[in-house]
Amino acid sequence: MTNEMIKVDNLTKIYNMGDTEVIGAKDINLQVKKGEFMSIMGPSGSGKSTVLHLLGGLDRPTSGKIYIDDVDISELSYSGLCNVRRDKIGFVFQSFNLIPTLNVIENVFVPLAPKGISDEKREYAKELIDLVGLGGRIHHTPNKLSGGEQQRVAIARAFINNPDIILADEPTGNLDTKNGKEVMQLMRDMNIEEGVTLVIVTHDQNVGNETDRTIHLRDGEILKDIINKNSSNQSRSPEPPVTLGDDTSDESAVTY
């Protein structure tokens, strides 16, 4: 058993748009260690979300391999991918994607619903809701919550199945600075407390700086792989795969 939670080998994703081929990801090689908090940055169309969706089993690669906890998910059936998403991965989306008819705790229950909700899980959901600071609003529906609060619910939902990995697509994109910082802090806290591996997509450099490591994409390729020395969790920052660059810089980078 390795220390790698995510391993990507020569990952390529090509979309066919009529007669045109659009490259979403090109020959990406990447390893993310257990408990690592990593961000993916890049301009629009650089392939950030494509890589995140491939890592989460929401999309299939054109070629290459993706290993989640040593399991090659690129070979899994549809049902197998569903199981990986249920048991190994939690998603957090930019637009929260809560179900408007359900209250806070019911939204947190959503991933559990098909298998039934045990008393233990009910208690855990309450603990999570307390942890994200919404203990007093457990029966509120999303329309009675602010954007920041809704994202907290989404984070609690992502954690309910005790996943090994949280994949977040622009989790602060729809939030103001204050709420954005709070959500990032919450994710960092949960990263520390739950030991979960976090991969977030962002175009905000400040958000990226809050993570242990940032990979920069351009045209579907990794441009840079940087260890953020000033991230708020230096103690948990993994060793960089390769450390290059100026010693005086607060970033250690691998440039491809």
Partner: peptide, 12 residues
């Protein structure tokens, strides 16, 4: 919403 259900591991 159905997309979210599937993303959170719901089977068909």
């Amino acid at each position: 919403e159905i997309g979210v259900l599937m993303a959170t591991g719901w089977q068909k």
